[in-house]
Structures are given as C-alpha cells and as structure tokens.
Design a protein around this nucleic acid. Structure first.
Lengths: 147, 147
DNA sequence: TTGTAATTTATAATGATTCTAAAGTAGTGT
DNA sequence: ACACTACTTTAGAATCATTATAAATTACAA
C-alpha cells in the first residue's frame, strides 16, 4: 500500500481512505491508525501481531481492542496489503512488502531481512508434479554472525 | 535415523536403542515406540505434533502423555533426528528427512512433499550481508491443482 | 540391590488466537 | 440533518497448542 505521492510523503490519510474504500473496507479510525503505523514508512516493515499490539499501545492514545487488531491484519492480508512469512513454530511475520521477493533470517535474533528477487539467480525447479502448477517460489536464507 | 540394515527392514529396536544411547538419550519404552512410528518407514514422513498424537493414540496400546510426546519430538529435533518446516501460521511440520532438501507445499491441502536438492538448480544469492554467513538455504515451492 | 539422575506423568498455567453478542459507527437514502 | 442498515469494534469468554510443575516412575551404574 503506497503512501508516497510525487516522491513526497503524504501527511494525510486520503490515500489510505481511498485504498480501503476501493477494496471494500470502511476507513474506520482504527484501520486508519493501523495503516499509518504500518505503511507510513520508507522501509518495508516486518512484524508479528504481538509486535504490532505493543506499537499500538505505545503510539496511539485511544486503545484498539485485540480482536480489532487481529481482524485488521487478517483483512489487510486477504486484500493483499500484507504478506505472511512463517519462519518457525514461534514466529510468523507479516511483511508490508507484498512484492515477489525472498528473505534472510538471522537464526539467532529471528530478524527477517528482505532479499530482492533480482538478488537471487533464477530458480529452476527440475522436478514436475503431474496435475500441479507452481504458484510461488519462496527462498529463506538462514544466516548467523560470521565468527 | 536409519532403520534399514543390509537393505532389510529391522524388526527389532536394537538400532534405535543404539542411536538413542549414543546421543545421550535413554531408550525408554515411550521413545522407542515413537521411534518405531516415525522412523520405521520406507518414505520420509511429515507430521505435526497433533498428527503424531493421533497416530500414537491409534497405534499404541499404552498411553503416552502429551508432555512426553512434546519432549520427545523436541529432543529428537535437538539431536538432529528431525527437521522442522514451518509453512504457515497454522502448520509447522516435522520431517524425518534431515538431509539438505527443499519442499513443495500444496496450498489447498497443506500437504508437504520433499524436493531433492538435486532437483533444484544451484541457488546463487547475489547479495552479501556484511558480518553474516549463510547457514542454509531453504526453498518452498507453493503449488496447487492445475485446472 | 540400591541410589540417583533422567524420564514420564497428570494437571495446571500460559499464550496466542478465535468466537460471541452487544454497542457503536459509516454510508446510504430521504 | 435524520434514520436505517450493514459493517465494525469491543470486552470478555472460549478454545487450542504448548510449556511448566512437581510427584511418581524408571534406567542404569555402582
């Protein structure tokens, strides 16, 4: 969900309102606040729902209920504004970068770092499963400190 | 954990007992039963802990407590007899195939299918993160029915 | 056989997520 | 501006998976 226009950051909510309306979601106060926290950023943002709850508690005056946070993240995911990346049993991240890309995962800190599609040579799967077609190929590169 | 010898399936537990002892785990009745269910198979086996609980309930006369099932799976993972593959928020699988390999995931059924390393052209990561080294590269190929 | 540390067990506790039903709100038509 | 309706939010309960606890049991070395 783009929040920059003519290279200049939009300070208002008009784009979020448009976007939400155009995908059939009413632009409520809660959704707009969450949009602002998630999408008003230069860099893509990786977060768990627990992370988001903490950020909301810290940054927003009025409380947003837990159920609403879950509902909002799930509807944003369903509408394609968020992508989910599950790295292990404990951590499943949402990613504001919904383009086709890959990830590094620091196995010590669980930090997730975007890896552009262009930074990985084309992946060629030599095995073909009859009756099935490939819908996406996701690469997770696990990393750790170099010493 | 190998359970075939001279191409012939071992009907007894001696290999499991050896293996467990050699990795510092006492070969208890419960662990041996779970070994038998997990490793006495021709094909690699993908399961969630919930799956395993059901299988144990069905196949084993004497009950194994839930805590033991969790403990056993986690210690087998720690000892390198199982590999964990997290495909989404709802499903995290354990895989008896601990070799370096990849997976297909049927996004409709959540079925996981092994993909041999040789069936994927060498993955070349062109981006380098300073101070970090790569410990593994995992590819998840999402598939669905072809119609 | 005995002692001890590892293991298993039932149950309680925790934590994340979903459900529920009532209250509140946005958008439409008047 | 007003009223209506469907959508949304909310607090709290319910559910589900997982982990912690502490007592009973077991493996195994002496």
């Amino acid at each position: 969900m783009v929040c920059y226009k003519f290279g200049k950051k939009m300070n208002n909510n008009s784009i979020f309102i448009e976007k939400l309306r155009s995908s059939g979601l009413r632009p409520t106060k809660q959704r707009l606040e969450i949009c602002r926290l998630l999408f008003d950023r230069k860099k893509t943002f990786h977060f768990t729902i627990t992370d988001l709850c903490k950020i909301i508690k810290k940054e927003i005056n009025k409380k947003i209920s837990l159920a609403t946070i879950y509902n909002t993240v799930h509807s944003f995911k369903k509408k394609g504004y968020l992508k989910e990346i599950s790295v292990n049993r404990e951590k499943s991240y949402f990613d504001t970068n919904t383009s086709d890309h890959h990830h590094f995962l620091d196995i010590k800190t669980n930090e997730l770092i975007d890896l552009k599609k262009e930074d990985v040579d084309k992946i060629n799967i030599k095995k073909n499963l009859p009756g099935k077609k490939i819908t996406s190929i996701e690469v997770l590169v696990k990393i750790e400190n170099n010493n």
